[in-house]
Design a protein around this nucleic acid. Structure first.
Length: 478
RNA sequence: GGCCCCAUCGUCUAGCGGUUAGGACAUCGGCCUCUCACGCCGGUAACGCGGGUUCGAUUCCCGCUGGGGUCGCCA
């Protein structure tokens, strides 16, 4: 068997949403697993809604996710161009061919006429299904009027195909009508453009969302009309919102960049999306490499699912915690922009690398990580008013002083810091908890942080002693 | 409504005739503990209904119910 050729064909009419990413991902995984080709094609024939910005967002989204394409925009390839509006001549040629073979015809009916017919039928029988009545099927004249090209559908029999996830799917041809191939402005419609492109680009497996299942029979008719080999099809169950409806902008964060901006790691996004509608035994956590190795169409489920933001967050947390899934080096690189956003543009990767271990298992997103790292990189920590109020009280001053003085003689390793602190506590006969919270507030400005000795160690001697001194002053002043 | 598709804990899912129906997220207890986390231990929680087939159905078949998709000169 030759290597499969797959494609992802988004229309640039908005951001790349999470469902589209999953479709792209499954195609990409299969291409990478099998050594096949992954083609990116831009279906921009809806000139009303397509924009250059959207096209760029889609490209950038895929790049951010690490989903690369072998043929398509920017990288080119032997079957280009890869934007449909640049392929108009190809469609025209194919449409002319079908017309010449009497498999398609020019239709001069206007939208208004057809709408009127539809209305009339509905009036007579509200339940009736309006189908194009074949008005122009046998017209031989070619008036100087706008026309669309329609496919001449044989409404006998049925179309059957074997879906790689749903199995055999059979649809009676009587359901079809003479569907439009090319608009009156010469631009192809979805079914025609997609099929012509898939044929000319040599696509052998079409994997897309289940919402496209309805398009498969007419598309197969087109392959047959062209005498082309019908590709394999794989439809994916849908991702629904929490209410069980088709995901839409109204559902909040559905654009990939919203997750990027919320501090998600690209591989975690891929992990969550892959496990949605696909499984591999009990395994929940996958690196990108794991995914490529394990993926198969047979293991795809058929039931639609509801998007679960909590699980998505948990998967991201798992990735941020795990070195195998996200190296400390990459972590540092990715958290930098979020620190800059907080007004810490001078922080370097090395700075982050030193402090990272203290927060690694705590931060669920890079946004949280930046927040947890914040006080390490400021001359003075931002003091939480409530924390000060509660812990930097007058009584705390002497203990903080003793604690600070005990630490001053430490070697400034976590172990020695702890040893010196313990010696002090023992001498005074007090518990660590009697001094820990005031000290924590002094050092970090907050009531929750990594372990005290870790914070002291990362902060360094000068900053630590300075912050403790400052806190003692605050406490004494109350 | 027509056509197509689907159906295991709240959610994502494992299961491919015989299981105490498993895992993960969430949730509820507990342990650990200088706070917050992490980690660990434990609990609650599912086969939509009705017929078949079979010695035996969550699993195979049919019907019902429920849900979703789609019915454009959008994709």
């Amino acid at each position: 068997m030759t290597s499969p050729r797959l494609r992802f064909a988004p229309s640039p009419t908005g951001y790349l949403h999470i469902g589209g990413v999953r479709t792209a991902l499954f195609n990409w995984l299969w291409a990478r697993k099998t050594g096949g080709a992954f083609i990116l094609r831009i279906e921009d024939t809806d000139q009303e809604r397509s924009t250059a910005e959207s096209r760029q967002v889609i490209l950038d989204s895929l790049k951010w996710l690490g989903i690369d394409w072998d043929e398509g925009p920017e990288v080119g390839g032997p079957n280009g161009p890869y934007s449909q509006m640049e392929r108009l001549s190809v469609y025209k040629e194919h449409a002319e061919r079908l017309i010449a073979e009497r498999k398609a015809f020019r239709c001069y009916c206007t939208k208004a006429e057809l709408d009127a017919q539809r209305e009339a039928l509905k009036k007579k029988d509200p339940k009736a299904q309006f189908k194009y009545p074949g008005t122009c099927r046998n017209r031989t004249d070619q008036p100087d009027l706008p026309y669309v090209v329609r496919f001449m559908v044989d409404r006998e029999g049925s179309i059957t195909y074997t879906d790689k996830v749903f199995g055999e799917v059979k649809t009676p041809n009587i359901e079809q009508q003479d569907f439009v191939l090319v608009r009156s402005d010469g631009v192809p419609l979805y079914n025609f453009g997609a099929v012509v492109d898939d044929i000319t680009m040599g696509v052998t497996l079409v994997a897309r969302g289940r919402d496209h299942m309805i398009n498969t029979p007419p598309q197969i008719m087109l392959y047959q009309a062209f005498g082309a080999k019908v590709p394999d099809f794989a439809h994916l169950p849908m991702m629904l919102n929490q209410k069980g409806e088709k995901l839409s902008k109204r559902d909040g964060a559905v654009g990939v960049f919203e997750y990027r901006d919320a501090g998600y790691a690209p591989d975690a996004v891929l992990n969550y999306l892959a496990r949605f509608g696909w499984s591999h035994g009990d395994q929940e956590i996958f690196s990108k490499k794991d995914l490529i190795e394990a993926f198969s169409w047979e293991a795809c489920g058929r039931g639609d699912g509801k998007f679960d933001t909590k699980k998505f967050l948990a998967i991201n947390h798992e990735h941020l915690k795990t070195e195998r899934l996200l190296s400390a080096d990459e972590y540092a690189t990715r958290v930098l922009p979020f620190l800059a956003q907080r007004g810490l543009p001078e922080v370097t990767k090395e700075d982050v690398a030193r402090a990272l271990y203290t927060i690694r298992e705590r931060a669920r997103t890079f946004v949280e990580a930046a927040d947890m790292l914040d006080y390490f990189f400021r001359a003075e920590p931002a003091m939480d008013a409530k924390a000060v109020e509660k812990f930097l009280v007058t009584d705390a001053a002497p203990r903080l002083r003793g604690f600070r003085d005990a630490l001053a003689s430490a070697e400034w390793t976590e172990a020695d810091l702890e040893a010196k602190a313990h010696a002090y506590l023992e001498k005074e006969g007090i518990q660590i908890k009697d001094v820990a919270q005031p000290a924590r507030v002094a050092l970090t400005g907050r009531t929750a942080s990594p372990g005290l000795y870790q914070v002291l160690f990362v902060l360094g001697r000068d900053a630590s002693l300075g912050r403790l001194t400052k806190a003692i002053e605050i406490a004494e002043a109350r």
